[in-house]
Design a protein around this nucleic acid. Structure first.
Lengths: 252, 252
DNA sequence: CATCGCAACATCTCTAGAGATGTTGTGCGG
DNA sequence: CCGCACAACATCTCTAGAGATGTTGCGATG
């Protein structure tokens, strides 16, 4: 038939619901392969495109992941806990410890690639940093990898004039990182603002994070201020949402 | 043909890219209708299913929204700024002001529906609140609407024993809200933890928030602690990610 | 002038088949 | 015993057509 009696829902939704239930009850465990196009066609007596629609629905929900030529597999979810406040406490970066150390329980989060350039900052960033038309920005682009999987893209902007000739303009910023160096320059960050939002990744982000379709990214925009209230750093981060839980602790 | 020469990308991706470019350059403005299935079939000489795939891609990216029988329209994005820290400052709720007032610039965020029940808390919540097998929880479920659009679902758990007979167990908690009442009970919240993550909505969330496919939700789990470090409230929120930006301010 | 019914048009769902392309394991040859 | 070629199998892409269903605006009717 076609567009048959809508007693409740479409065929592909019924099939998807059945598979979804199987995942939630644990019939199909994370990493396990589940029935593919051909299996569903045979089992439910539907056309290929209909079976595909059912699987596409589950992919869009982020429950499963299709690997071409191999099959459809149940996704896993073991997020990193990222402490928004404590990780930026001075006790952390003041002592030469990586501010990332506190994030992960035993797992291995490392910088995959670093690129430091001097370029013109986007208008919105230039405005925040108080850069004029002529001023340029030091831009630090980094990618972080956990267990071989890229999970975080970070782009950091600072006044080029301020950091020129310091380790901040080098790939390796030394013990304590950028913030320890800023303190040595008399521009210690004392206050932070983080803005969080979420959306679907664009093609570029999708490629850099090797994300499978149907998973959102979280965006964190962090601004660091010194004791004069001047913004000294703007950091834009793109996180694989399936890899992260953000935690913020604060007092009333 | 079929699965033709992959010089670079599939037909449906080329078509999607073209429309995407049109959106980004402003050729198609928010709210405007863009070429539908029939237009794309004619313009590119492809089959209906191929045109549909192109449009499905843009929907999955959250760029457009299809309205059955009407057409495909460009999405808009005007988020609410939610201040994670300041909104819970005592100056806010201590003075009888709604903690929501600071969030929105002139727009109208109101509670759409409130349901207060007494039931058994989920195991994870019971653990945090320190509830035993016998203890029950006061559960406050609310939906918030902005400009007629539902944007936030909130489920709040408190010890039923603690709040029984107080306004907290009523739909209207009075000036200053739940936290002002908790203070009167000698359990003033002094510390908060918020955990943020993001994923695609499930069917129920999708329906309650009237979300169009391809937009993620953000989940906030907030725990409020009193001066003894005891958890007095657990609040699980589901936010339409296209409606919110979360802001957290803190010191090093 | 208001309102209701309907036609035109939009997306949604589905069928049946087929070539392209990526993955995996097996078996043969060195 | 190692390694490579290849067959089997998986998903991906696309065609052409058609009935179902929701939206909208126009025209006829009261």
């Amino acid at each position: 038939m076609s567009g048959r009696s809508r007693e409740r829902q479409a065929k592909y939704q019924r099939i998807a619901a059945e598979l979804r239930a199987g995942i939630e009850t644990g019939e199909y465990e994370p990493g396990q392969r589940l029935p593919g196009e051909n299996d569903l066609m045979a089992a439910h007596g539907v056309a290929r495109m209909t079976a595909r629609q059912a699987l596409a629905l589950l992919q869009a929900e982020g429950l499963v992941e299709a690997r071409k030529g191999a099959g459809v597999f149940v996704r896993d979810f073991k997020p990193i806990r990222r402490l928004g406040v404590e990780r930026l406490a001075r006790a952390q970066w003041g002592s030469g410890r990586s501010i990332w150390a506190a994030d992960i329980g035993g797992r291995d989060l490392v910088v995959d690639s670093v690129a430091v350039t001097e370029e013109e900052a986007p208008a919105a960033v230039a405005e925040i940093l108080g850069l004029g038309e002529e001023d340029r920005a030091c831009v630090r682009r980094r990618r972080f990898v956990l267990d071989g999987e890229p999970v975080l893209l970070s782009v950091s902007y600072l006044s080029a004039e301020l950091v020129r000739g310091t380790p901040i303009a080098q790939p390796d910023t030394g013990p304590g990182g950028t913030y320890a160096r800023l303190e040595e320059l008399g521009r210690r960050p004392v206050r932070f603002r983080e803005e969080v939002r979420s959306r679907m990744p664009n093609a570029e982000e999708s490629a850099h994070l090797r994300m499978s379709s149907g998973m959102p990214v979280m965006l964190i925009g962090r601004t660091a201020f010194d004791d004069q209230g001047r913004a000294v750093e703007v950091n834009e981060m793109v996180l694989d949402a399936s890899a992260y839980v953000l935690e913020y602790n604060f007092e009333a």
